[in-house]
Design a protein around this nucleic acid. Structure first.
Lengths: 188, 188
DNA sequence: ACTAAATAGTGATGTAGATCACGTAATCCC
DNA sequence: GGGATTACGTGATCTACATCACTATTTAGT
């Protein structure tokens, strides 16, 4: 399946665009290839848009003053990622995004997203639902973080995204769950 | 300021509706008055829509099996609240929403929200931005929960929403921060 | 192929915050 | 206005998890 087809199917799940409308939208996406370890967004830099994952796996993470990493989001095929805080507040990136594996992405600039949203009502509809889904997921994760211990959170994550188990090293899983890698290692 | 004016100003911050369009929208909102302590959404019940706060303060919270409460969100004037997970997945409420003080709300059903979004492009635009804002706030809170200790989180909350200090009893602040009321009490 | 780096497991010890158990002041409410 | 409920503070103890230190294994780069 081509990148174009992946995006088309993804959008079709929540919005109905004509062939013509979709082709027009697709012109605004810039295909990018990244190698494992490459940085997509670097803290402090300007964020020019958001990224739709065609293949591979990325992480969006924050490094605190003690050089501890916390992972905000993994991004797998058909997921979107960026520093949404930076995009929303029009500031420099406060997080990093990089590639856990080789990855193919489609980049859409904020300016183009807003243009497409205002030109095509269904595109705005699509982005509303996508963001809504992210909001609900973030709220669920907040509750899980407050309610559950490390083991329960780990099991929940594995239940939700079993692919992560083999795709992502455990210390990154730990950084997502908000526990130390040692504690995660002792959970079995 | 009337409820209608409060809503109008709020929407105008992110979207431009004509007088006529706004009046049409406003017909779909149902004004409701609640007394302190009254329940707006009860766990297990059907959720019929979302609520825009005109006055007062509410909380959206989850009670776990150990009968411990975790607060997902406070809602103050010009904020929206509901069980967005239930609305998104079309399931029964998994959280509760009730009133910390007497409150005036405007209720918009999901069906009406979707209708208005599809009829008026600018309404869809408004709801996209509102949800985006919530998503960014939830992500920031996730990071804070993973990065910061109880004291730092408390100070951050007070900096962000100083009104909460006098409006909301401390054990509810604790339930929002994800610490016990005893620990919060010892922070000063 | 050989070295360096990344990944992973585990013991010993430290600590933030939970939990339990009180006492007291403030508010609600019939 | 008096009894009950809610809010708040504080000591004593417990515990989940962090941190530090070290070893073993796997993976990647030249």
């Amino acid at each position: 399946m081509t990148a174009k087809e992946v995006l088309k199917d993804h959008i079709a799940k929540m919005a109905s665009l004509t062939e013509e409308e979709f082709n027009y939208c697709y012109e605004h996406f810039k295909p990018l290839s990244f190698k494992k370890g490459q940085v997509v967004i670097r803290e402090g830099d300007k964020v020019d848009g958001e990224y739709f994952v065609i293949s591979g796996c990325l992480k969006a993470f924050y490094i605190n003053d003690d050089v501890k990493m916390h992972i905000l989001q993994f991004a797998m095929p058909t997921w979107w990622t960026s520093d949404y805080q930076a995009l929303y507040t029009q500031t420099k990136a406060s997080i990093n995004v990089d590639c856990i594996t080789d990855a193919e992405l489609l980049c859409l600039t904020s300016a183009d997203r807003e243009k497409l949203c205002s030109e095509i009502h269904q595109v705005e509809h699509f982005f509303r639902w996508r963001t809504n889904k992210g909001y609900v997921a973030a709220q669920r994760r907040l509750l899980s973080l407050m309610n559950n211990d490390a083991k329960t959170r780990y099991e929940e994550l594995m239940r939700l995204y079993p692919q992560l188990h083999d795709l992502v090293p455990k210390h990154l899983i730990a950084a997502y769950l908000g526990v130390s890698r040692e504690t995660l290692s002792r959970l079995y």
